[in-house]
Design a protein around this nucleic acid. Sequence first.
DNA 1: GCGACAG
DNA 2: ATCTTGTCGC
Length: 230
Amino acid sequence: MTSFSAPAHETPADEAEGRAVQERLRGRVILDETGPEPGTGLVTGVDVAYDDERDVVVAAAVVLDAATLETVEEATAVGKVAFPYVPGLLAFREIPTVLEALAELSVDPGLVVCDGYGLAHPRRFGLASHLGVITGLPVIGVGKNPFTFTYEAPGPRRGDSSPLLDGEEVVGRALRTRENTSPVFVSVGHRVRLDNACAHTLRLAGRYRQPESTRRADALCRRTLREATG
DNA sequence: GCGACAG
DNA sequence: ATCTTGTCGC
């Protein structure tokens, strides 16, 4: 916990307050930066696992070398569920424990990859945007389904993509990371442009549909959850 | 009012 | 997210 201290975060009392917090923070999102060069530096995947029965949440952060995809460092944090799952308010459920896990790292996280959305959100302020604004780190979101948005199937080849749309507005991209496999949905979080977000995603995925970063974070928080629970 | 809805 | 075995396909 040398490079990063858990920033203050607020858990809203109800859904209306949560939406208000998002409306207030969305103005701090930075969209006009390119972000880290794909394939260089570090990339950190974050993910969370739950046991709502026991009111336990485990977050994991796994740092990879962007060039070799080797794991550089891992960290986890265990907490209590702070907010129920409400579509559009996912960040309030995940962020508190994710921040603790990031704070356990001894290295700068570099680019953070979220399992979820950023700009592709009803108020244009999803998990990846929120995490970016709070930490100041470059963040992108890579989701597994189109949420409430629409898209036309991208071409069949790895790397093919199509716009993810909210009506006429482009909020992200459906990106094929493997042939014969459904696409993932990439959207901008903070300090990274969409083209670059997709380039990072392609470098991180290919062996599997999802980015290697989120796969490892997912495996780690699940394993930690069942070791902490049963 | 009804249906749909990241993880 | 989570509950859950085997099974079809690259």
